[in-house]
Design a protein around this nucleic acid. Structure first.
Lengths: 340, 340
DNA sequence: TTGAAAGCGGTACCAT
DNA sequence: ATGGTACCGCTTTCAA
């Protein structure tokens, strides 16, 4: 009858009080031992007893309670909506995570699909992260930034084309990707340049600037740019290839290597020779581009490496008053191969 | 002088007490209003004042404090080490996140790179998630599962080939992928079947079972299986293609479509005709396989869809006593095209 | 060397 | 209809 009947078989989670009881010491001592608190000396026998008790009970400290008491956390929040596809993002994410762990931060990727603007900012703020690194999938408003800062975030960092007031920014100059691609094509004597604009959602923030960059590159050269909406599907590509001749294009910047492969296949099937009749340039410098025939000319993009970003996070956290800086960390250049 | 000098410019994060003070009510009332507590009736004017005060201060509740008090959270932890590359994972993750959000869970992807076994389990347990969904990148031991359960996790779910005691499992029968591929090749009259084993780390848990499945398929048929270590690089593929004839293989299961593309290119460049001389089968049914010439035969894998998994999480959370079940949710079948 | 106790920010019971 | 208050688990003075 010592068991409360309302909780059928729910054994309680052990707390530091349980450990203290079992070890015959106070909760304070448990805390000292388990955290190796330097300012306080605990005898070795006591340490032993505490450790054994913790082990026996399977005690694990409660992160929420700890950070509540501490008044801060070491959590770096990384909001994502659609996880970007591709090896570039994967490498970037792994590097970032690794680098931040070395600096004793905890990286938490927080799914924010379907949230927007301030709603998202509030959801993130509830977790009281010390820093937020936004990849720009979820639009961050100045107001959202303010919400985060008021809730204790020491740093808000945006990575991507967007530039939001009050944040540190790692600018990724997507425009440059389109610009160098178009410049390359113009140099090769191409005049009517198509630019693929993927119809898949979530890519606008890349495709838009790339298209604009291409436009900028042709300005004053007499060459023209034509946007080409395209879905990542065979039918869409075939449909586009079917009216290729009437479009009168002699070159295309295909957004990235995967769309380039799709389009190249459709063009070749439609009897349009690459690069003789139409040049193609991709982007990302994936292995698959080198496997195509003709080999794919591409724009190589040096993604901001994780360690740089981790250092920016850390310095922003340590000096929250520091003026938010915008740092350009994306270089891109054409790797000419056979398709252009 | 009303400012404490120890905190230079650090304005404090507003709490519900601040809201209460500004609205001229008690903290309890603030809580009632902001949570729309049904059991208690608050007058409309009061509600207004509270809401306005909260708005003015930019108040956001503290998730840690809330879940500390509540004694539980709705956090579903998704540990990851290397974020798997590829569209399949991306789709899976987005679906899972979406589905769990609908069930009012919060998905947190927790970077666990470099942690292993119990160490990782303890790190996860500190966050007191209500459920943990392991994709098997970080090895989960029975002891680790026990740690998580003792720390209050109602459900531990593994997705992948591994099967750990005490967990619900979504079995992904990787063996079957290799089996159906090899069966297909044997049916087509192939006798010496190579099986690509990627050398990249983190893929062993897939490649191992796939190889074993292929072996199983050829048993008793007179056909043989030869493991082919391969890095995802042109040189590695060229090297392999260079000694292809001495290997005497008439077919290869290339692990997945991307490795298949790499190998097919190398074989073709080495003058080995596909499929006449060597048949190739990939896996994942990516679009790129349809773009190759010859079109790539592949193994289509029905990944467990997010909604199913979300439902399993929810039911496991609601009935933690329920016997952990192993559910087979991965079907795979060959899609014959031109390369085999 | 160790313990008692306050308090972090919410929530919910019990009064009023 | 609202307020007072105990408590969730942990850290950290301050005392002993």
């Amino acid at each position: 009858m010592s068991q409360s009947p309302k909780q059928p078989a729910e054994r309680p989670v052990p707390t530091s009080a349980d450990v203290a009881r079992l070890a015959g010491v106070s909760r304070a001592t448990v805390s000292y031992v388990l955290n190796n608190t330097a300012a306080v000396r605990i005898s070795e026998p006591t340490r032993q007893r505490v450790r054994e008790a913790a082990e026996e009970l399977g005690y694990v400290p409660h992160a929420a309670a700890r950070s509540l008491r501490a008044g801060h956390s070491r959590m770096v929040l990384l909001p994502t909506a659609h996880v970007p596809i591709g090896p570039l993002y994967s490498r970037f994410f792994n590097e970032l995570q690794w680098a931040l762990r070395r600096l004793d931060y905890t990286v938490v990727q927080y799914g924010s699909l379907g949230l927007d603007g301030d709603e998202a900012a509030r959801a993130w703020a509830e977790l009281r992260p010390v820093a937020v690194v936004s990849l720009g999938e979820v639009r961050l408003t100045p107001n959202g930034v303010e919400i985060l800062k008021r809730s204790g975030a020491k740093a808000v960092i945006t990575v991507g084309p967007q530039r939001v007031a009050g944040t540190h920014a790692l600018v990724m100059d997507q425009g440059r990707v389109g610009r160098v691609a178009a410049e390359h094509l113009v140099e090769r004597g191409r005049r009517r340049i198509g630019v693929v604009v993927p119809e898949e959602p979530g890519l606008e923030m890349f495709s838009g600037p790339r298209l604009a960059g291409a436009r900028q590159a042709v300005a004053g050269t007499g060459a023209t740019v034509v946007p080409l909406p395209l879905r990542y599907e065979e039918e869409s590509a075939n449909e586009l290839a079917g009216r290729w001749r009437e479009l009168g294009l002699d070159a295309v910047f295909a957004y990235n290597d995967e769309y380039a492969m799709l389009l190249m296949r459709a063009l070749q099937d439609a009897g349009i020779s690459v690069p003789a009749e139409t040049a193609i340039v991709g982007a990302d410098d994936l292995l698959l581009g080198r496997l195509l025939r003709p080999r794919l000319t591409t724009v190589q993009i040096d993604m901001v490496i994780g360690r740089h970003l981790a250092e920016l996070v850390d310095s922003a956290v340590r000096d929250p008053e520091g003026t938010p800086e915008a740092k350009e960390l994306m270089a891109s250049r054409v790797v000419p191969r056979e398709s252009s």
